[in-house]
Amino acid sequence: MDFDIFISILGSAVRLSIPLLFTALAGLFSERAGIFDIGLEGKMLASAFASACVAYATGNAWAGLGAGIGIAIVFSLVHGFASITNRGNQIVSGVALNFVAAGLTIVLGQAWFGQGGRTGQVPASGRFSGITLPGAEMMREVPIIGPFYANVISGNNILTYLAFLMVPISWWVLYRTRFGLRLRAVGENPGAVDTAGISVTWLRYRALIVTGFLAGFAGTYLSIAQSAAFINNMSAGKGYIALAALIFAKWKPVPVMLACLLFGFLDAFANFMQGKALPLIGEVPVQIFQALPYILTCVLLAGFIGIARPPKAGGVPYTKER
């Protein structure tokens, strides 16, 4: 394959993996705290809508980001209220929030903008646009590293760099802070955490707030960094792919990043392969690439590529002794 084409696929893979990365890291925090979150998709969608609306109204991208994060945290808190405070079923709550987000974004979008669920075009100042890193033009002439630096590493928007920055931060928070230790403990054995005199409820709420915070970035990225408006059902199942990536990465931060990059690459490759033929095999249906992340995750879950062991207390509401 031509090297330039390969570089351009890599660049698009990075861009496609960013919403996955934010969302999967978001899921990492709630699932490690023992709260399953099927509602990642809904959080992403709701925050994409909120940030597009606010960025459209104010022309300020950061205000948009704030709104996106805010609404995703609200969704997280509702999830927490249902599944922590009321000990409801976490899966059911997540499914419900996905529906609410899918419906509300269209209903409100139509009522406010009247464009069939699209929001207004966000002005340039309300978007996160690409940043050319220093030396990108100069480096371009250097063979191999040059185009890679200029087209893959440079030229992305600030959220992209933030996403990759979140990986070591998440690792540090989860494995090197007291909060992280307790968070992981509450996902494995909430009884023990409770015995130590730490509030399981408050700890899990805090984990969910972090989840909402990170999911807000993902939605914002979709609507005002990758595009310039909110479009109907714009998350299009990315929340579920992120969930798959989280499982594929066995609930660990650095593997999460690699899994998201892999799934982003598959997506980019599928776009590129549309209507083209591979040597030897001939034309491969694009649908195979679309299904591949899910198939890979199922194969992993079957235990053929190591064992994916979820946090032990995941999905079980915590009840004190009566």
Partner: peptide, 17 residues
């Protein structure tokens, strides 16, 4: 899509809550 909202509310209140 208002139906989707109602559906979500029903699942939330009749199911999760």
């Amino acid at each position: 899509d208002m139906i989707v909202v109602i559906q979500g509310m029903v699942i939330l209140f009749a199911g999760a809550l």
